[in-house]
Design a protein around this nucleic acid. Structure first.
Lengths: 147, 147
DNA sequence: GCTCATAGTTAGGCAGCCTAACATTCTTCC
DNA sequence: GGAAGAATGTTAGGCTGCCTAACTATGAGC
């Protein structure tokens, strides 16, 4: 239970990683101004794009509490992007389902954001892009370590 | 001025990058619960750790408006972590300066966070860590492209 | 010295998150 | 089958962080 003995090299990498992340969050925030759809809303629509899911699942995936998810989902519903339907297998639950309009908005916003990010990546050389591409799975692995 | 012709490969990478970033922001948020110091406050203290700086500089570096920066800085001041002093060279300006207590708190929080991140990185193998280390400068470069 | 730009602060409002309390439905166990 | 408890959402109320608009005070230029 004692904290691992601090490996200096690991701490250095952690420091760099942390600094990079901080700036990245910042970048992510500025990318966020997509007109009207927030990053959270994008994520929510993306989940529902695969299959309808419960409010509690949305909350868990977003890392927020259920009441907060309800709030966001109601806004998406009012915008006509999702619908809320009782789960036929469990009347307590509510299924969040993407509407046709929601799917269109999600895809369109995704295209816009991809284009914007691609424009940034275009300024890298091939080697840098390869390095980045190789690292993304590693970062994903780190992200999933939390689970 | 027309948007670059979409290079499919670039868009793919952009898509992966975007997805990874989203999860990373999420990770970053969960790392944020450091007891009492928020990520923004950490950044602010970090800036002041180098040298006293103006409120407007803090705002610019954080990507927020001046009134919002004032708000945060006042909180840090009330917590005894920074002091606010008039700039001797320009009486309109206010210099945000780290107090001894502020420096201690900043270093301590940095250590805690590094340790936490290092614990995540410890679960990677050497090759993955090398891949990650190689990519950090690239990501930094992307971040700075915004400027 | 008047005018205009610059640096911060104050005031008021909005969005997103939280906890606590509640209604409803499912599950378990007798 | 019925009571007790668990699970799913929603509602209510509050907090934080961000914003814009309006204001004060100082600096800079003609």
């Amino acid at each position: 239970m004692s904290p691992d003995p601090p490996d200096p090299q690991l701490l250095d990498l952690a420091q760099s990683f942390r600094t990079t992340l901080r700036h990245t969050v910042f970048l992510s925030r500025s990318m966020d101004s997509d007109g009207d759809i927030t990053a959270m809303q994008m994520s929510t629509l993306g989940m529902a794009a695969d299959a309808p899911l419960r409010v509690s699942r949305v909350a868990a995936n977003l890392g927020i509490r259920v009441p907060s998810a309800t709030e966001q989902i109601i806004k998406l519903e009012q915008a006509g992007l999702v619908s809320r339907q009782p789960d036929p297998t469990d009347s307590r639950a509510v299924l969040v389902k993407l509407t046709a309009q929601g799917r269109a908005a999600w895809e369109e916003a995704g295209r816009r954001r991809n284009a914007r990010v691609a424009a940034l990546l275009a300024r890298l050389d091939d080697g840098e892009r390869a390095t980045l591409a190789a690292a993304l799975p590693v970062i994903q692995k780190i992200n999933h370590t939390l689970g």
